[in-house]
Design a protein around this nucleic acid. Sequence first.
RNA 1: GCGGGCGUGGCGGAACCGGUAGACGCAGCGGACUUAAAAUCCGCUGGCCUCACGGCCUUGGGGGUUCGAAUCCCUCCGCCCGCACCA
Length: 853
Amino acid sequence: MSRYNPKEIEARWQETWERLGTFRVAEDPSREKYYVLEMFPYPSGRIHMGHVRNYTLGDVVARYKRARGYNVLHPMGWDAFGMPAENAAIERKVHPAKWTHENIDTMRSGLKSMGLSYDWSREIATCDPAYYRHEQKIFLDFLAKDLAYRRESWVNWDPVDETVLANEQVIDGRGWRSGAVVVKRRLPQWALRITAYADDLADSLARLGRWPERVRLMQENWIGRSQGLRMFFDLKDRADRLEVFTTRHDTIFGATFCAISPHHPLAEELAAGDAGLAAFIAECNALGTSEEVIERAEKKGYKTPLVALHPFIEGKQLPVFVASFVLMEYGSGAVFGCPGHDQRDLDFSRKYGLPVFPVIAPVGAGADFSIGDTAYLGDGVAINSDFLDGKTVAEAKEEVARRTEAAGSGEPTVTYRLRDWGVSRQRYWGCPIPVIHCPDCGIVPVPEDQLPVILPDDVDLEAPGNPLDRHPTWKHVGCPACGKAAERETDTFDTFVESSWYFARFACAGSDEPLDKAAVAYWLPVDQYIGGIEHAILHLLYSRFFCRALRDCGYIDFDEPFTGLLTQGMVCHQTYVDGDGNLLFPEQVTRRDDGALVHAETGAPVTAGRSEKMSKSRKNVVDPEAIIGAYGADTARLFMLSDSPPERDLDWTDTGVEGAWRYLNRLWRMVSEPAVALPGAGAARPASLGPAAEAAHRAIHKTIAATTGDLERFHFNRAVARVRELCNVLTALSDDDAGAGWVLREGLETVLRLIAPMTPHVAEELWRALGHETMLADVAWPDADPALLTDDIVVVAVQVNGKKRSTLELVRDAAEDVAEAAALADPAVARAIGNKPVRRVIVVPNRIVNVVV
RNA sequence: GCGGGCGUGGCGGAACCGGUAGACGCAGCGGACUUAAAAUCCGCUGGCCUCACGGCCUUGGGGGUUCGAAUCCCUCCGCCCGCACCA
């Protein structure tokens, strides 16, 4: 048998699987299904190590579940709309569609070289009208159900590029491309009513038992449910009232002012007749939205002529400010300020000379309790608060809520941080929003028989503004209702819309309907979803929302898309810096004989920086295709699995890759040049086994049991370790042991079956080499013989006062007094006890004996 | 500020429910094979004391619970992540 040549065998097995359609699947109600999905990639160019890790993890799960007899759906596609395609168009003068499709072709062949068990017949690209036409249909259904609506919302506007910017495109308050100062601007936008499901999205997190706790917490915080009180303050000399939201109504007697958002309708009304206020609001709008800006921003206010009347103190008047820090989007866009018990209100009050006094005092505080520079946020009892005095915070809240509701001036209410999802983007490379604006009829949905609304090919992406809006003809259409000249909506969807339902489309990729009910009912929900933690909030929350919305539109019968979730860590690599502080690529660095790192060409000294996420800008990337070319996909896959648990960050190291490569070569030799002559495939078990052979036989079955458990729990690194351990046992077998050949064959076959999900090509090849005609991908997972999992003799540790002093070999399940007697008879134990009297002996069967003296 | 996580040899990491800490791998050291090198194979490898037998120490620091703690509790230190003017 020739040497291990991954290039040759990997190509051959990939071709075989494809030719035989090994991983093509169809609905089969007689078999239990299992749907494994990895987050589909954005086709940015070439595959990177993050992809290799993500898709290796998914492939192990898919191949393992397949061996366990499940009907496994394991599809792949492309999240193909998005800004990088437009940027490439501008920078390289290539059409976004061409750029995207070329990238898809490159990445598809990259993924195919990894030997992933995808059903490629289900491949989808979201930029394909065959995909997005269904998304348009779904949007129309949402529209009909009032789950989609149009609203005015504030956006980051780049006045030079005449475009809306995402928050991450605003850098230090300026547009990332134009450098122009970004302003806030109100535009009509399409939104999806995710808040309609806020309670259910929060409550149902508890049902997602196979999701990481961390992700559930992040979602819970993002939804940000908070219980509070909606209160109406009468306004002096006005008929209308001011609505505020508070969670600290216990502090109502400490209220000294009210503050409204610069975007509050009252602020806008007043600004019409007050140039100073109008200027103040403009100033607030000019402020950027980045964290840093907000952090440093002063709490500014503008005093209006409005006066609010305290609901419980007759005649007490509260000035009303327009304040920069009050958000229109949260609560009612108005608050009452209580400086004693809110730090921001306190800072504001000091700045504008408003009175400060406490209304809650910590239990046991003296009568002189007062507020300095720090607001008191803790628990306590009400003071200076009339009918609340002496009540605890909780009691006071209850009392205020009761009286407010009785007076008809408010009620307990729940608010959320979660906002409705704005889905309009002023971009070309996205799914067109299928509506028409008619001067007479208003908004008219595009009739279904006119779907899809297809993106025009001929666009000018370089001029400022929205390319679809600027297109000479595309947007001009007749109104479907009245026939008069009308205009298409020129915004496209946020690309998160495509990824919010693709997992369901995979169940019925060719269907004429958006979703085929029977196919979706069979395959969904996704049993195991695998991807990066960076999608912990938006993508996963949007998908959960979409499921509920699709359910309410009659498409599906479930509401949680992903039963299990695994969030994998990043692939990291050392960074290298030369003497001048320049970053170097790993291939520019070499290790001299004395161990020092030097520049490969110049020999100049190089320092290794810390390990960071692989990224082009840090120059610490390793190209997967180069690794696969040099070592093969199996080595790359094995290394990805063996060194770190999947959810933790993984350090890419050359020595680690070498280790994986060496192991596969060793496995190859163990089969091609077995140390003990092997009987033929399927040979009967010898009548008796020598002691070492018997021990190895047991080790084989223990490894099956342990590895199976590890794979079930996604402990891939442990699974690899156990298989390697078994190989070490098998290596020690020799001709001296009766039945060694038979056990070695059993061991090698077991190793191949256990490792096949991880390194499928070499496993198939060696399976053939062992004389099998079957394809390993079609061979069932091995079963462990329960009789071989426990030993008759167990090693029990003996402690004296909790310190290990000796070990004993005892018969399994020996009686406690037998174990105790054996322990006390042990010389090392006796020495440790000395002449002290034994006070107590604790026996944990088959594990430990602890002698207390 | 709020929320969460992590800390184990030179390194990545094992250790199930509180029961023999350091599996497996990497690196290192020694040996075999070889004219030599690579590859491969065998052995050793947490620290300290000891010629040795053996002993002591050790899971970020300190304290506690327990017969027994990497694991549970308190506290401090360090690192990482998420959210962030949320009323």
